[in-house]
Design a binder for these strands. Structure first.
Lengths: 140, 140
DNA sequence: AAATTTATTGCAAGCTTTTGCAAATAAAAT
DNA sequence: ATTTTATTTGCAAAAGCTTGCAATAAATTT
């Protein structure tokens, strides 16, 4: 399990600056126990740093995602949710009827990953997927 | 291959009204040879119907998607793209480096669909997926 | 054919996310 | 320690999409 300090090292190694804003966004994501939204990160940081702007949250999230340190997932609800990539890769089933979110083990995507690599020579970024559909209860 | 008239029948059967706006949105989607965006549909219809509003496009697309007549897919580029569901189910690989879009046969998702149905009793709506990643050329 | 009912539309406002740009500042060079 | 540099930030505006609501109009009933 990677720690915040390792992510900081990665940023530094890639030549990105270690700004207080980035450190606070990172802390908010790492300490969150759920799939956090940009607005939630903003709300946490702005209490300590009143000038803080939400566009910095989005830019930091884009950077962390591009470096593979954070996953971005649309779980419905009209906003994207973020999760530290090191806190376990997993996927979700989202019921479009009742909104229920079912956790899925990472391994369910292994076969598809293999096919895309082998048959299409494509390296997919499948670390945190959400599939929409109808759950057992709602399907009668 | 389903025709526009069949979609109109389905709408009518479900008790939805056959308004001129809906007919024009439908015509724009059906006659498009690519994955069309809401803005493109709006631009086409508004030339014939100046009062036309883009919120009607989004509401019509949501309805057609809910009835399974149209697929919604994020192919990158900051906007969702729409496609008639009857024009062949297929999927895409989107390269995050060069933006290249590779077409994928519907069957690549068969195994995953089976697993989700069998092991999770979940009926997934996997009719038009896009997977992001790195294509053969960009992966060196 | 007219009246009734109820879904749908247009409009305006709002929400989430992105972007251009000048000012600020982290890190490197002196 | 100071200056230089290039990245990053805050701000404002905009893009894409959604939603509340009163007015409109499709379809049903009379």
């Amino acid at each position: 399990m990677k720690k915040t300090v390792d992510i900081i090292t990665r940023l530094s190694e890639h030549g990105y600056r270690l700004t207080p804003q980035r450190m606070m966004v990172l802390a908010a994501i790492e300490k969150s126990d759920h799939h956090i939204s940009a607005e939630e990160i903003y709300a946490q940081v702005v209490t300590k740093y009143p000038h803080f702007n939400i566009s910095t949250v989005y830019r930091t999230l884009e950077l962390l995602h591009r470096l593979g340190l954070v996953t971005e997932t649309d779980l419905g609800g009209g906003r994207v949710r973020y999760h530290p990539a090191d806190k376990g890769h997993h996927h979700h089933l989202v019921c479009q009827e009742c909104g229920r979110v079912i956790d899925l083990d990472e391994s369910v995507m292994d076969h598809l990953k293999l096919v895309l690599r082998r048959d299409y020579n494509f390296e997919p970024d499948i670390r945190h997927m959400a599939f929409f559909g109808t759950c057992a209860d709602c399907g009668k």
